[in-house]
Write a protein that binds this DNA or RNA. Structure first.
Lengths: 356, 356
DNA sequence: CAACGCAGTGCGACCGCTTCCGTAAAACGG
DNA sequence: CCGTTTTACGGAAGCGGTCGCACTGCGTTG
């Protein structure tokens, strides 16, 4: 910058003003400075700017694992919004490890990130990190999961309602022996989905044997194992609700392995509505989560805070939507014929999927 | 920092020394300083450090789109390696837009990123940005695609060989009418795959009608459309090689839509071996790319450069592997019986998949 | 015993930029 | 034409660290 100032025979401050337009500069001078800048390929140091102004245009985003197909869309939503406001996103994977999470948290603090977007790890303790009103903590908004004791902004999904409706669909299709594969019990959204599942069963006066509730860890492998346990039970459940699609994939795998047929012998509904749901065999009925919106709204919320909004925290809840495909079989002895899907609809189910 | 120095009655420089261990400090003093730091929750400003030392621990990563399932694994590989060396990754999506790419490039330069990991956009011009030996350009390594005129470090995949082997597999299965759906023709890896495909056909003296080469843009939708065109031709190809799995998914969709059967009426092989390949119907035969390794080795290469390795650029090429599943049908009239898959193998194809 | 070396510490310049303040020149009003 | 306001610019003080250098004791050495 000094170099530029010298070559253009102006002061260093003036250069700053022409770059940022923070003060009027005579056109002639301005042009001279601009010319020199073009020649030298000057790129202002965001570090120095950040240091001086004590604010940066970086947003830290802490997520469990970008490799889990649920997250990329969410990240993208956040990044797109951030980008539009010329903020940049720095991405951190915690592997659901609270230690790694708080490490990243401090790291981002040291970069003086303008704000933080966090999908808390299972058993996260970031709520406590924020507690003592420590100075110099940037605004934070939690996404998808709300850790214990978190009182700040958050945007989540109506997990309980989504699971409730999914289970209801199973019941309305005539199923009476319905099992569930849940996620880790420390994860709020996992707990909520189970709650919704239980609620639907209870309302329909259906029993839920303890062994029909299998806990897994939200990945394909553990879903596969849980399904194996379930499918060997007698009586076997006629339907399974998997609390996310990755586990549902594992269930599908287990069904094939045991030479069962889906949906003829066992119905299945997942949660997340990942893209591959349309292409599995059979196409997977699943609860759609607006993951892109989740990220985008969270980013918007954060930007508001960054720009100085005070006031009580917002707790946004986004709605889900059950996407009907081919993995649920309406049972003939159903007493719910009213709400049963007509047979013709099952014959060209692609249209349902395509309508998404 | 000044605050700490005061409370511990030492100089500001000494605080720096105990934090970084850059000079011996008497245990008693050190402990006193550490105590104060713990109380105040001090977090050194990475900005100030970066400014003073002129180096940061950030690595910029520029990719087309995290939403494309090929990339998360790659990003993860890079991030894991970076993390181990206490570098952090800033993620940027270009949407294959060269303008956005160079915008991000400059942005990252202004953050004084220690190095850059770039998956060039189609038609990328970053090679030219690096040309004039402009000062203050951090080390860069290109991943997955090598833009025109790029002479720096890079790590890519043996696209041509992978496509060649995939096509060979189709030919050995008895197919004579094989079509291909390629990616954008400006993308190096897309071109290479087509080249491998052509090579295999030529070696087997098989004709390739011009209309059997359909260009799409590496996503499901365009793959679907290309497949539709292909499947309506007469004579219809008996096999399709899709240059990536997303497009293969589109092909599967088109096959179902036209009430054809895969693999009985039309065989299919993809490229990438994304995770969903095992779960589509039928399970998709695909060319595995070591995406995690791609990211990890690129990060290692970059770190070497950051740590000062001089010398000529490395051009690493990682190998692919054809994963056999159920989307390819051996034709009975095959004259390649030697290399044909035995029927029994087709009956329990899950084992092939499981062996992955 | 004087000279010397070295571990331990304080001091202050500086990294590149923003921004406040002061001032000279220009514009303005009477 | 002169005083006053406005405008455009230069000067310089930091932002929060790092690091070279100077200084101070104290143990070693000739």
């Amino acid at each position: 910058m000094r170099q530029i100032a010298e070559r253009a025979s102006v002061s260093i401050g003036t250069v700053s003003h022409v770059v940022n337009g923070t003060a009027p500069v005579r056109p002639k001078l301005r042009e001279r400075v601009l010319e020199v800048i073009r020649n030298l390929g000057f790129q202002p140091s965001a570090l120095a700017q950040g240091l001086r102004t004590n604010r940066t245009r970086m947003i830290g985003m802490i997520i469990p694992d970008i490799t889990n197909p649920f997250f990329p869309g969410l990240v993208r939503g956040a990044e797109d919004v951030a980008f539009k406001h010329s903020y940049r996103v720095i991405l951190c994977n915690t592997d659901n490890d609270p230690a790694k999470e708080s490490l990243y948290f401090n790291e981002l603090r040291s970069y003086r990130a303008a704000g933080l977007l966090i999908i808390p790890a299972a058993g996260s303790d970031i709520a406590s990190s924020l507690k003592p009103g420590t100075a110099g903590i940037p605004p934070v908004v939690c996404i998808d999961r709300r850790p214990d004791g978190w009182t700040g902004d958050s945007v989540v999904v109506a997990n309980e309602l989504g699971a409730y409706r999914a289970t209801q669909h199973l019941i309305q299709s005539g199923h009476r022996h319905i099992a569930v594969i849940t996620g880790p019990s420390l994860l709020a959204n996992s707990v909520e989905r189970l709650k919704g599942f239980r609620k639907a069963l209870k309302e329909a006066n259906l029993p839920l044997p303890a062994e029909f509730v299998q806990e897994a860890v939200f990945d394909t492998r553990s879903g596969f194992q849980a399904a194996r346990r379930l499918l060997r039970m007698l009586p076997r459940p006629t339907a399974i609700f998997a609390c996310n699609d990755l586990m549902a994939l594992g269930v599908l795998h287990a069904i094939h392995e045991l030479d069962l047929r889906c949906p003829e012998e066992i119905s299945l509904v997942g949660f997340d509505d990942l893209e591959f749901c349309e292409y599995t065999s059979p196409a997977l009925t699943s609860v759609y989560q607006p993951s892109y919106q989740l990220g985008a709204t969270a980013a918007n919320l954060l930007l508001e805070r960054i720009k100085g909004r005070k006031g009580s925290p917002k707790r946004l809840v986004l709605d889900t939507e059950l996407k009907l495909r081919n993995s649920v079989l309406p049972l003939e002895h159903s007493s719910w014929s009213v709400s049963r899907m007509p047979r013709t609809a099952r014959k060209s189910p692609r249209k349902v999927a395509a309508a998404r």
